[in-house]
Design a binder for these strands. Structure first.
Lengths: 110, 110
DNA sequence: TCCTCAAATTGACGTTTATCGATATGACGC
DNA sequence: GCGTCATATCGATAAACGTCAATTTGAGGA
């Protein structure tokens, strides 16, 4: 049904403080790598690595223009991950937990 | 301003497939550890470790009752993490990126 | 008071991650 | 074509992570 492992990549990406900050920065619009780098105390190779992770999970898109690479949020993925987060944290009428032998607690079940 | 590292813990917790599944299970209501364990192919100590991580980041609450421990989602944290996700992914009028030397792109800035 | 059972903790392991410096790639201007 | 600049990739390293089996803790029942 829901692809946990796909979205886990996104959560893993957001699980790093600096990557969460990068996402926050990009939420205001496209930025080129050097602008992002300026804001952080990290090497260029480390930033590049973080951007790769953000891109690979789908949260961020890269657009190359000459020497520069511009990054921006992928709004589709953003909205998907929000939906996913809502889905796994909200009660479901037909949840698997509602049938048979789950959600009764140990007492009622043994 | 916003405490990235606090919420990064929550994302890190959700970044593991199995923990995301556990959250999904708990969204339908309280469950005791043994019920969760039944659903997974993992050792009891591994489950206990995952539950600890989920509790420590605030996503899940544990309630001990006799021999058993019942787990449930902490709705406050759930709502906070949703808000945080929205915040870092949506455009902000007074975003730090809107001032001075950011968001102009490299061309306009050097 | 024992024994049993649920859960947490410990210690070990192999894997993944974050980071860096160094190097490679590829675009631009001369 | 040659330096320079922006990024990406590589290789190394130390820390963090997921997992298990074994042990400990603590509650309940005989």
């Amino acid at each position: 049904m829901s692809d946990y492992s796909e979205y886990s990549k996104v959560f893993k990406a957001l699980g790093d403080t600096k990557r969460a900050m990068i996402v926050d920065m990009l939420s205001c619009g496209e930025l080129c790598a050097c602008m992002i780098l300026e804001r952080f105390d990290m090497s260029q190779s480390t930033l590049s690595h973080h951007m790769k992770i953000l891109c690979e999970c789908g949260l961020v898109k890269g657009r190359e223009q000459g020497k520069w690479t511009y990054y921006s949020l992928d709004e589709d993925t953003v909205s998907e991950i929000k939906q996913f987060l809502c889905r796994i944290t909200s009660d479901k009428e037909n949840c698997m937990c509602k049938d048979s032998d789950c959600c009764k607690g140990c007492d009622g079940n043994e």
